[in-house]
């Protein structure tokens, strides 16, 4: 077993995400942390600070425990889903925020400006996706099997959705085309997610066997507002699916820029300034601030749209299969208990 502080591939450094996206990430994080502070105060009371502080330290230390996986690399836990299953999604958001903040501010693992996006990806998405996959599956399958299937599916899906979100953010920042980043990130993390799922199951079964009283995620407050977060995530997923479909027909940003730039050419001093002088030593001129850089749109519209859709649909199909299997097991279990009575 190795004890190395291997940076997780998702601790993005600064420079790879656009400034506007990073600031947007901070705004989302500020709102989520404010809500999380309020809900965990109801949930944990005076124990709030010591419990979450020590759990954050445990997640950090748990991330260092590697196990070798085929192919010469080693797998380790990210822990968002596990934390959410144990103490509820809101408390998990705070714990993961603390972990990511310490990694960036003390160990220089992950950027400062992009910390908001890193917290969204590795803290908020993992917690909520993990929790809301685990809960319904556990409700459908009774007993230990439900916990195991639910925890595995939750942990696996949490990593896959996080990877998809990071890919979309990279594409929005113009760092990597979506048609390349999405299949690559989702594909790699569909494999890494198996390790996350296994570690989550075995950590959870150990805690349930030794200290079952510690698993308080079931009674965590803020469930209703937590559903809104899931709704927001689904909406973001839908938008990602629709954006490449819509873009070849209506390139909104371009049109607005052209419309605003046109009056200036006619001598109007008011308007959107398109720099016509060469940049400060820059040889190639580009519009400095584009929400969707030019190349992604034709690139997605022309060919590999099917690849993106396939990736997204693949995730949904796997989820549907897991859900269907859970329903089936549930039916068998209820039939069996009906026969017994």
């Amino acid at each position: 077993m190795q004890h190395v502080l291997a940076p997780h591939p998702m601790h993005a450094p600064d420079g790879f995400f656009s400034a506007w996206l990073a600031i947007g990430g901070w705004i989302v994080v500020a709102a989520m942390v404010a809500l999380a502070v309020r809900y965990t105060r109801h949930q944990l009371g005076e124990r709030q600070v010591p419990l979450m502080g020590l759990l954050a330290a445990a997640i950090f230390a748990g991330q260092m425990l590697n196990f070798t996986i085929p192919g010469g690399t080693s797998g380790h836990l990210l822990g968002g889903a596990l934390a959410a299953i144990l103490i509820g999604p809101w408390a998990a958001v705070l714990v993961m925020t603390a972990v990511i903040a310490v990694q960036a501010l003390l160990f220089q693992d992950g950027g400062l400006l992009v910390m908001g996006l890193n917290i969204i990806n590795m803290g908020i998405i993992t917690s909520f996706v993990g929790y809301f996959t685990y809960r319904p599956i556990k409700g459908l399958i009774k007993g230990r099997a439900g916990i195991i299937v639910g925890a595995f599916a939750g942990a696996w899906l949490s990593l896959v959705v996080t990877a998809a979100a990071a890919a979309v953010e990279l594409a929005l920042s113009g760092t990597s085309p979506l048609a390349v980043a999405l299949p690559a990130m989702v594909g790699v993390h569909a494999l890494i997610g198996i390790g996350e799922g296994l570690l989550t199951i075995f950590a959870l079964t150990f805690i349930l066997a030794t200290r079952p009283d510690l698993v308080t995620g079931e009674s965590a407050p803020g469930q209703r507002s937590a559903r809104w977060v899931i709704l927001g995530l689904l909406l973001a997923l839908a938008l990602t699916l629709l954006a490449p479909l819509a873009s070849p027909y209506a390139d909104g940003m371009e049109r607005v820029a052209q419309a605003l730039a046109a009056p200036q050419e006619a001598g109007n001093p008011v308007g959107f300034t398109v720099p016509d002088k060469p940049q400060f030593f820059g040889e190639f001129r580009e519009a400095p601030y584009h929400i969707l850089p030019d190349y992604t749109i034709p690139f997605l519209g022309e060919g590999p749209l099917s690849t993106i859709l396939a990736g997204m649909i693949g995730v949904l199909i796997v989820f549907a299969i897991a859900y269907g299997a859970a329903r089936l097991v549930h039916r068998i279990q209820t039939n069996r208990s009906a026969e017994q009575t």
Partner: peptide, 26 residues
């Protein structure tokens, strides 16, 4: 699976100990 179980149990143990420590600290 064996390696994952071993590591998973270590993590679980770490969590249980941290919970208990947080109780004492509190």
């Amino acid at each position: 699976i064996f390696r994952a179980r071993t590591t998973g149990h270590l993590i679980g143990s770490l969590f249980a100990r941290s919970f208990a420590r947080s109780e004492r600290v509190y």
